[in-house]
Every structure is written in C-alpha cells, then in structure tokens.
Nucleic acid binder design. Structure first.
Lengths: 255, 255
DNA sequence: CGATTAGTTGAACACCCTCAACCCAAGTGG
DNA sequence: CCACTTGGGTTGAGGGTGTTCAACTAATCG
C-alpha cells in the first residue's frame, strides 16, 4: 500500500476522539475557557465571561493523536473546532489519489465549515493535538446570536483567504527552488525555534511535497541543495535552522 | 513591452473611475438599490428598506472599462465594492513579473478587503463593468453595526475560501489537460450560454494561462487538442461550446 | 540486532516551457 | 482598394525542470 495514505486511516467512529480530562459543559460556566491557552487569540477572545460560559457549554475538549483525521472531504459538515494545541493539515485529493494540502493550522486557529452543508477538505492531525469541539448546529446558532464571535470568525476567514491566495502564486508560478525556500521561511515565521535557532517541521517530506505541489524526491533534492549552499542547516529528519535568511528570501522570490 | 501588462495600465487617478449616471447617495434613500440587478444576490440582500437606504448613502456607482484596474496589490485598502455587472480578475505577481490570477469575480460578488490594512491582490476589469463602491472606513463601520450584512459577507468569504482551496488542487496536482478541461467546465457553470450553447469566455488565452499556472502556448495547444478530440467547439477567439460534457468531466478529473 | 519506515540519490524520461515563426482578423492610412 | 500595422492566437522545434522508477542509506523501534 502506498505509504502516503497512512496518515489518513479512517478513525473508527466518532468515539475515537478521546475526551481530555473530565467532560466539559454541563454547568461548569466556562471553567475550561478560564485556563485556556488560546482564549485571547481564538475566535472566542472577544466574548465576555457569561457568553464564554454559554459557548463552553455546547463544546467539548478532545485529544487527537498524530495521524488521526477529524473531518473528511465531502462529508456533511457536523463539527467545527478551535485548535488548542498542535498542528493539523487541511487536504483535498483527486479521484486517483493525488493529494494537495490546502492549509496548515496551528494553535488558536479555527477548523471546520460553519454555515455550509459539506466539509470541503479533510482535516488531519500532524502532531498530537487538542481541540475545543462544537457540534455544527449549536455553533452556528450561537454564532448568529453573537455578532462579536461572527466578526472574529470573519476576520479569521478573510486572513485565511488572503494567505490561501498568496499560496496560489506559489503553486502556479514558482519553481521548486522558490517553493521550498518560501515554505521554510513561512514555517520559520510561524513556529517557535529553540535557543539554537532550530525549528521542528511539523511536516514529513511527503507532506511538504503535498503542500508545494511537488514530489518527495524534488523536495529532498532542493532541501539538499539549500543545505549544500549553506543557506540552511539540518538537524535530524525534522529539524531545520535558517543560516542565511536574506539569501533564502532572495531564493524564495526568484532573485 | 511585454503585452501581458497591457491590461494593468495604472488608472491615472481615482477620478478615472467614471460615475454612472447621476451621483447616488445624498438622501436618495436607496433609489439605486430599488432597481439594482443584484440586490437579491449581493451581500446587501438581507437588509431592510431603511438599512439599504443608509448603505446606499455611503456608496456610489462607478463604471469601469475593460482593462481598468480598481485596486492594486499591496496598496492600503481604501475601497470595497459590490459588482453590479461585468467580470473582473484578482491577481498577484512575483517581483519579476510572473502573474497569477487568484480569482475571477462576477456580478453580485464582493471585492476589496474589509477589516484589513492592505489589499492583498490587484482587481482589474476583464469586461466593461459597473460597481457599487464604498469607502473602507464607512463600510467597515456599517458592517459592524449590521450583523445581517456581516453574516452575508462571512458566508460569501467562506464560499470564496472553499473555491480557492479547490483551485489549489488544480494548481498543485493537475496536468495541463486537466487544468484546461476544469476551467472550461467551471466557466460553463458560471456564465450564461446563448441558445446555441456557446459561452463567451471573459478571459484571453494569456489570462487563462494566468489562472491555470501555464503558458499561453500550452493553453492554446490543449484547447486545440480538445477541439480536435471533439469535446468542445470554438466560435471565434472567445466563444466555446461544450460538445461532450461527460468526456470533458472525465478529462478534468484525469480519468 | 534485524525490521521497518523515512529520506536520499541516480538515471531516464515526460511534460511543459522557451523561443521563434507564422496565421488571422481588425484597423488605418495612402 | 490594397499595403501595412497591430494584437491575439496558433504551430513547431528543442531544451530544461521536475517526475518516475529504482536502488540505496539513515533513522527509529521493537
């Protein structure tokens, strides 16, 4: 079997989403939100105490293991969620199995398709992750009653759209060298580095290829070239340190 | 000079946007909206009489000629608009002039970047067009005060995001044949056909190439092939008739 | 330690790009 | 009316970038 599909093993059923700690909701008045790591960045940030309690009551926390898929492309949209911790990919495929990763989401991002019938892409955990999960109907209702939440969601969606369109330029018009350089810089900006300046990529080589519209071999060669040119240094399979950011930026723009 | 840039001649200044008919706004209480062709599809559809009047007061109607650019990538975002009539392209470019069309908008679509500092892509009229134009500050304020409008805008933005992500699969993973077939089917679904079943493409060959991440020659060859295979028929430069939709669909999916 | 999975490297090929010539339709002006 | 131009589109030949297929190496894990 093609290893590309390994990460996409179908979760047996919904109960495979493990509850983290005690069940939330049920009159606990936002106790999870109070100590939530992302409450000031996520879409719930502008809610007041009471509203957050109400939202909390319709949601629940779940833990995901790396590789687990939360939503499937084309399925009816029944869930939405905030990402509390971890990194996930959004992906679509052609009928014959070619995959394209259409987004990578991090802590405090929002996933799922509110106000729509179908989930347009699959959502799969790249690392272990924790979500704050809401059933669609309840979330949609809550959102419609709370314009501050909808406004935040709108802002986030507009930002997503901008970023997605910028990525189209990469997919349509950049060559392999430029694509890889752009991705490394993008990850560098989004992920925390250790004190040595090394970032841990949340993506395998195959997944990098699926983000960039390339093959794994091309990605491997380009990364090797960048290393040989002294623009980056590698630390194990997933570790990367940007050595010469300026020259890497130049690569990314094709100069 | 490279002909690719012809369509992007910079409008001399803002006053180049010609007012259509008498000036709107100024206490006319939504008279333009009353006879607006897109009022039931655009984001203002759910506003009541009075709200529409208020919105009308902050906007104005402008006419565009094919080729005119309304907004420039990277400029500070000062305008948003509804498209009343016509087709426009959204595009970004690399530093060295490679262009990618990141969206094509039609009547009743919304353009511009509300709630954000910069316009992430240029907007250029492909055909003559009419817009209902709002200054950013006033529009943002109105939207925040009218959740029904924001909700419509959110729905539209979510749809745009879905469509954009679907296009990423095309850009990253489809070959030239599949790309061209997909575009023709997409246009077929979005544009009105005459009684002979012929649709008038709003895009030149170069623009098709810029949507698909190809070169003009490749587009021309692929269209020629599809014609020779009897899947489509051509009528002049811009006219296309889908002869065998099923086989074209199969082409589009790579079967 | 072998077994397994992820990543690298090489050689040959294919697809699409590049560059160039050419065609065609629609002006324009003598 | 015809020669000439101009812009968009087509066609051809050749080459390069990235893919494909295969073998190999490096990490990880029992």
């Amino acid at each position: 079997m093609d290893m590309r599909f390994d990460l996409a093993q179908k979760a047996q059923d919904d109960t495979a989403l493990v509850m983290a700690g005690a069940p939330s909701g049920k009159g606990c008045g936002g106790q999870y939100c109070d100590r939530c790591e992302v409450r000031d960045q996520a879409i719930c940030a502008d809610l007041d105490e009471q509203q957050r309690g109400a939202l909390n009551r319709i949601g629940r926390r779940v833990s995901l293991q790396a590789g687990q898929t939360v939503m499937w492309e084309g399925d009816s949209s029944t869930l939405v969620a905030n990402v509390i911790e971890g990194t996930l990919k959004l992906s679509t495929s052609t009928g014959d199995g070619r995959e394209q990763i259409v987004g990578v989401v991090y802590a405090s991002d929002f996933i799922g398709r509110p106000f729509g019938a179908r989930t347009p892409h699959s959502v799969t955990a790249l690392t272990d992750a924790r979500l704050c999960l809401y059933p669609r109907g309840a979330f949609d209702g809550f959102a419609r009653e709370h314009p501050v939440l909808e406004h935040r969601l709108l802002q986030r969606t507009l930002d997503d759209l901008d970023r997605t369109r910028a990525w189209m330029l990469l997919l349509g018009r950049k060559n392999a060298r430029e694509k890889v350089a752009t991705l490394l810089l993008d990850m560098h900006n989004r992920l925390p580095a250790d004190r040595g300046g090394v970032i841990e990529l949340p993506l395998s080589r195959q997944q990098i290829a699926d983000v960039l519209g390339l093959t794994i071999e091309t990605v491997s060669r380009q990364i090797g070239d960048l290393k040989r040119m002294g623009l980056i240094a590698l630390a194990g399979r997933r570790g990367v340190r940007i050595v010469d950011a300026d020259r890497l930026e130049a690569m990314a723009e094709g100069e």
